[in-house]
């Protein structure tokens, strides 16, 4: 495996478990994922992935489609159990989904039978929060994501961008320590996408949750993240981890003109192109 280091140290080969820093939120230890395809054949989607994500870090996973980046996120979510290796959150092995890790999917996955308020309240009610309290908190969250006045709408009545705002509010409601975002803005048009990126960044800079963010947009990853994990395809491996050393709070208008930002984008795009070639020659 070729490890390219840009400015900062690569995190791909993470330190052994015992020496794990206290601030590690997620620790992925030699995880592999094999899927049964037809008959006795199997497909290796992820191969020997090790990665540590610090508490409060915004980490993006980038890679060509089919590189298993979503699968990695599902493993951290506890939705899929790995064929090999262990994923830990706060030092505890992940055995299933839990409210400490909140997912946001590209498909929104809102409950169509509940209105906007009902969707956001769902997790709180599930945690045993009283109805009135859950409602007050959900209304506040909806205001924060810019959906005040839409409480009684049903998801089908909202645009894609608004649906995703509801989905983000629904997940933030039960206050997970980690946000797992699976190409959350992939289904949105360019304009909506930009606005949601800005808003997500604003929300995140307020409470600095740990975020694992899967995307195939290099600009999006660089704009949002502290670290960008670049993966190769078939089988999915970590090619390099790039530290994004840009000041925060980030302002889109300033960043787009910033030569450092531009260089990150160009360098990472080159890396991804290389992984494409690897795949052809493999």
């Amino acid at each position: 495996m070729k490890v390219v280091t840009l400015r900062s140290d690569a995190l791909a080969e993470s330190e052994p478990l015992s020496g794990k820093p206290a601030s590690a939120m997620i620790h992925i230890d030699r995880v592999s994922q094999r899927f049964q395809t037809s008959g006795r054949q199997s497909h290796l989607a992820l191969s020997d992935i090790s990665l540590t994500i610090d508490d409060g870090a915004f980490v993006s996973i980038l890679g060509p489609s089919g590189c298993g980046k979503s699968t990695l996120l599902y493993i951290v979510g506890g939705f899929v159990s790995p064929s090999d290796g262990v994923a830990r959150v706060k030092g505890k092995a992940i055995t299933g989904p839990g409210p400490d890790r909140g997912p946001v999917f590209q498909e929104f996955a809102l409950f169509p039978w509940k209105n906007v308020l009902g969707n956001v309240m769902y997790g709180l009610r599930q945690q045993g929060v009283k109805h009135s309290e859950a409602e007050a908190k959900s209304r506040k969250l909806l205001e924060m994501v810019g959906l005040k006045g839409y409480e009684n709408f049903y998801p089908k009545e909202l645009s894609g961008g608004m649906k995703q705002r509801v989905a983000i509010a629904r997940t933030l409601a039960y206050n997970p320590a980690v946000l797992l975002m699976d190409e959350p803005f992939g289904a949105l048009d360019a304009h909506t996408r930009t606005r949601l990126q800005n808003d997500l960044l604003n929300i995140w800079e307020r409470d600095r949750k740990t975020v694992l963010f899967v995307t195939h947009s290099v600009e999006e990853a660089v704009f949002l993240s502290d670290k960008v994990v670049v993966m190769t395809r078939s089988p999915g491996r970590i090619k390099v981890v790039v530290d994004i050393d840009l000041p925060r709070p980030r302002k889109r208008a300033e960043l787009l003109l910033d030569a450092r930002y531009q260089k990150y984008v160009v360098d990472i795009e080159k890396l991804i192109d290389d992984t494409g070639e690897d795949e052809i020659h493999a």
Binding site: G78, G102, F105, Y122, Q127
Partner: peptide
């Protein structure tokens, strides 16, 4: 029923036993 609806509910703390009534039944309605 869309897998991700079930995942969303599980992540929000819905026990496995309740998924049938809280997600599968309404989604299949």
């Amino acid at each position: 029923v869309e897998q991700k609806l079930i995942w969303s509910a599980m992540a929000a703390g819905t026990p496995r036993a309740q998924i049938l009534f809280k997600v599968v039944l309404p989604a299949a309605m």
